Simulated scan of single mutants.
Amino acid sequence: MQNAELGEVIVEFVRNGTYVKCNAVHTATGVEVSAMGPALEPRAVERVAIAKLKRALATRR
């Protein structure tokens, strides 16, 4: 996935029952974060993971 602010980000979803885990990896730095939430709202969980990734990258700079 290409993000306008971050560049290339790999996003992975793993469903476990009623929950989904979203992993987001920034390809340029290798920083990885994850977020969990309801399986019925995977895009919302993805937004949380991307927001966490932005915060993680901001603390590294």
Results as ranks from 00 to 15, higher is better:
57 L>G: 14
41 E>G: 02
40 L>G: 06
38 P>H: 14
50 I>C: 03
33 V>Q: 01
43 R>L: 13
56 A>E: 15
13 F>Q: 10
36 M>K: 04
45 V>T: 10
19 Y>G: 07
3 N>C: 07
1 M>P: 10
38 P>F: 11
34 S>E: 06
55 R>C: 11
25 V>Q: 12
55 R>V: 14
28 A>N: 12
5 E>M: 06
60 R>F: 07
23 N>C: 09
38 P>A: 14
25 V>T: 15
60 R>T: 15
47 R>L: 08
14 V>F: 02
45 V>I: 14
27 T>V: 15
22 C>E: 01
49 A>F: 06
27 T>M: 13
18 T>M: 12
43 R>N: 15
36 M>V: 13
25 V>S: 11
38 P>Q: 14
39 A>V: 14
55 R>A: 15
3 N>G: 00
1 M>N: 05
7 G>Q: 05
59 T>L: 15
41 E>M: 09
31 V>I: 11
1 M>A: 12
30 G>F: 07
2 Q>P: 00
46 E>S: 06
35 A>Y: 03
20 V>K: 02
29 T>P: 06
24 A>M: 01
32 E>L: 08
55 R>S: 15
36 M>A: 05
8 E>N: 05
47 R>V: 04
42 P>N: 02
20 V>Y: 02
9 V>D: 04
39 A>M: 11
15 R>C: 03
31 V>Q: 03
52 K>G: 01
51 A>C: 05
31 V>W: 01
31 V>P: 05
37 G>R: 06
2 Q>H: 10
54 K>V: 15
31 V>T: 15
21 K>Y: 03
5 E>N: 10
35 A>M: 04
46 E>Q: 13
24 A>H: 02
50 I>T: 01
30 G>Y: 07
1 M>R: 08
26 H>T: 04
18 T>P: 08
43 R>G: 08
34 S>H: 10
14 V>Q: 10
3 N>A: 04
23 N>E: 12
5 E>F: 04
10 I>V: 10
7 G>V: 00
35 A>P: 02
52 K>L: 09
45 V>K: 05
4 A>H: 08
17 G>D: 13
59 T>V: 15
30 G>L: 08
43 R>I: 12
49 A>W: 04
1 M>S: 09
12 E>T: 10
19 Y>P: 00
19 Y>V: 07
52 K>Q: 10
8 E>I: 03
3 N>L: 09
3 N>P: 00
49 A>M: 07
54 K>D: 09
46 E>M: 08
9 V>P: 02
35 A>F: 05
21 K>R: 14
52 K>F: 06
58 A>L: 14
